[in-house]
Simulated scan of single mutants.
Amino acid sequence: MKKALFWTVIAAILLFNYNLETKVLEDIQIITATGYDYVDKDTLRGTTDAPFYPQGQDVKPINASFTASGHTIHNIRQQNQREAQRNLGAGRLQSFLINKEVAKHGVKHLIDPLGRSTYIGRDIKLAVVDGSTEKLLTADYSNSQVTSRYLSDLLEESISRLAPETELHTFLAQLDGFGQEPFLPIIKQRDDHIRYMGLALFKDDKYVDELSVQDGYTFKMLHEKFKHGIYEIKYKNAYIAIENLQSKVQYSVSGTAAKPRVTIYVTLRGKVQEGYGLTLHTKAKVHAVEKEWRKEMTTKAEKLIRKLQTLRTDSLGVGERVRSHFRHFPKSSWENLYPNVPIHVEVETNIVNTGIIE
């Protein structure tokens, strides 16, 4: 009986594997980055970055890209295959780029296939490109041999210190959920470098406006807890650079479902890294700098919130927090409530070190 069961299992495994498509790594050209530019309301121009690895030991990858126009991303990829010397595989896609003009017309038809795919990871980084994604992906960069590697490192390591992380699963949740609009980093090709330019704001799936790099950092402060980065403030006649050792944020909802009120509590802990001409050897002087820091960050935060409310885009997810606070909250009313909801910001600052000289 056991022997019969054993051979039955073996036969099932062989039969199952017989129907599977085998993929040898050496026979695949792996797509690591892809970007889409606007042509017209029905047509996109897609560029695929798929580095080519020649056969042999210790070989260096060669930048390879393919560009085609079409109505769907799968059709564009099929056209790219006409030029690729190996089978193009998207299982290790790392970066997905959309140019600003595409974003203005809506991105759901582009993002939806990624969400449906079973072989693409949910940790793909997304970004909006100011300019042409084709030019960005096909350019040569002095600080990287492979464009897609440079792009991936920039989005994962550098920009994540300045703006909230925006992976595919996060964007999909914001796009399909209630009470938070999506946002994405904006990047731009500058000569032989790629530069982070700020944060793109969406209303539903359409780009509506953007935040500067400085405002994007303030947005991150209001959105999530984090460390790293520099706060620069003006104190008297000098500028002070304060390293962010820790930033925490907490939302509190009060009032009623018909008239909610929101208070955002932010706690900042920092270390003075630069302040030429200033002496901070007494507690009174340190407290004076803390007060100025608190004042500047409160002003920046409230100005940013007013901008979001004017745009009617709830990028900070205030609506989700209000919904979770009140039972049976009428979601349909939030669209009209949001622009006029009182949102107050309270910032607490703490400087723990003023430098070795002090």
Results as ranks from 00 to 15, higher is better:
260 P>E: 02
261 R>T: 14
54 P>Q: 00
62 I>E: 14
263 T>L: 01
78 Q>F: 08
70 G>Y: 02
220 K>E: 04
303 K>I: 03
329 F>A: 04
272 V>I: 13
73 I>T: 12
74 H>A: 15
137 L>S: 10
24 V>Q: 04
266 V>G: 07
216 G>P: 02
143 N>E: 04
302 E>G: 07
200 A>C: 06
191 D>P: 08
59 V>I: 12
227 K>P: 03
163 A>S: 15
118 T>P: 07
277 G>W: 06
286 V>G: 05
56 G>D: 10
4 A>W: 11
64 A>E: 14
272 V>D: 05
93 L>S: 06
330 P>L: 09
76 I>F: 07
206 K>T: 08
333 S>G: 01
112 D>W: 00
52 F>W: 09
298 T>E: 13
11 A>M: 09
249 V>C: 11
120 I>W: 06
186 I>K: 01
261 R>Q: 14
47 T>K: 01
67 T>G: 10
6 F>N: 03
101 E>Y: 03
3 K>G: 01
131 G>K: 03
63 N>W: 03
123 D>R: 03
244 N>C: 07
276 Y>D: 12
134 E>K: 13
347 V>C: 06
309 Q>T: 00
220 K>M: 10
181 E>A: 04
232 E>S: 15
177 G>C: 05
299 T>E: 15
292 E>H: 09
222 L>A: 12
58 D>T: 09
294 R>G: 04
350 N>E: 10
356 I>Y: 05
215 D>Y: 00
143 N>S: 05
338 Y>L: 00
256 T>V: 07
177 G>S: 09
221 M>T: 15
226 F>P: 07
245 L>V: 13
224 E>H: 06
194 I>Y: 01
204 D>T: 11
60 K>Q: 12
304 L>M: 02
264 I>T: 12
246 Q>E: 14
318 V>H: 00
85 Q>R: 08
287 H>T: 07
53 Y>I: 15
91 G>M: 10
307 K>V: 01
357 I>C: 00
75 N>F: 04
178 F>K: 11
70 G>A: 04
15 L>S: 14
9 V>F: 12
258 A>H: 07
219 F>H: 08
275 G>V: 09
353 N>A: 13
235 Y>G: 05
168 L>V: 12
91 G>W: 00
353 N>C: 03
202 F>V: 10
253 V>S: 03
146 V>N: 05
285 K>Q: 11
266 V>T: 13
354 T>S: 08
19 N>A: 08
164 P>A: 14
249 V>F: 03
187 I>H: 09
290 E>I: 05
78 Q>A: 15
324 S>Q: 07
238 A>E: 12
295 K>N: 13
330 P>A: 11
308 L>H: 00
287 H>W: 01
339 P>R: 00
340 N>G: 02
43 T>R: 09
355 G>V: 00
19 N>H: 06
294 R>C: 05
249 V>T: 15
180 Q>D: 08
61 P>E: 01
163 A>V: 09
2 K>Y: 10
77 R>D: 13
356 I>H: 01
176 D>N: 13
96 F>K: 04
328 H>A: 08
158 S>D: 06
170 T>M: 10
231 Y>T: 08
296 E>N: 15
